[in-house]
């Protein structure tokens, strides 16, 4: 069996958090779909709340301290990313955006990403398409066609007309297919792509 690494980013603020609940379900769906394709997923789930101070510090200082440095390395080396945020004031949570802001602008190029969001009512569901998707398009990530929004009501009913479980399965399948089709990522270093001086001089 081959292996792929998946990083789950959850920007929920309260604990327990419905954002984390959705993130876990998207993770489970992705892991089982990968397993069905003979791929073992190495999963790391990151609660951005735990890194909130370090994220602000890095915004101000430019360098990552402590656990944040390790998480950024994991994200930049992941074969697939599941990113889930609560919707606050008509957009993604500020903490979620602050984390995305400190990633390198090329950190997610070509990287399979599955998007999820939670909110009080389904009126906010299009936020996924007017806020989150353009953000990851800008970063040139490979965003799964299906993204999943869960409102409070979606957690209440557990019958065959509730569309949430089916959406989660479909989204997990899409991400699993994208991850399976892609060569495993190798971590890239700061010095891997430095042009030689002749190239630098020629380009001047």
């Amino acid at each position: 069996m081959s292996e792929r690494s998946i990083v789950v980013l959850s920007a929920g603020i309260s604990q327990p958090s419905s954002t984390r609940l959705l993130a876990d379900r998207l993770r489970d769906a992705t892991v089982s779909e990968l397993a069905a394709r003979g791929i073992t997923a190495q999963v790391e789930t990151v609660e951005l709340r735990d890194l909130a101070h370090a994220v602000v510090d890095m915004t101000l200082t430019g360098f990552a301290s402590g656990d944040l440095a390790r998480v950024i390395e994991k994200v930049e080396a992941a074969d697939g990313i599941i990113a889930v945020t609560p919707i606050f004031t008509a957009s993604y949570a500020g903490l979620f955006k602050s984390f995305v802001d400190i990633l390198g602008k090329d950190a997610l190029v070509g990287r399979p990403v599955l998007l999820g969001a939670t909110g009080g009512t389904t009126r906010h569901s299009l936020t996924l398409d007017y806020a989150l998707r353009p953000l990851f398009t800008y970063l040139r990530a490979d965003v799964a066609t299906t993204s999943v929004f869960a409102a409070t009501d979606d957690w209440a009913s557990d019958d065959e007309v509730n569309p949430l479980p089916a959406r989660i399965r479909r989204a997990g399948r899409e991400l699993a297919e994208m991850v399976a089709d892609r060569e495993p990522s190798a971590p890239t270093g700061l010095f891997d792509a430095v042009p030689s001086f002749d190239q630098l001089l020629g380009g001047a």
């Binding site: 602000v56 510090d57 915004t59 101000l60 200082t61 360098f63 301290s65």
Partner: peptide, 13 residues
């Protein structure tokens, strides 16, 4: 100022 504490900053830099 207003970022890492002096304790954190002196440890990291």
């Amino acid at each position: 100022g207003h970022g890492p504490s002096m304790e954190d900053f002196t440890r990291e830099t």
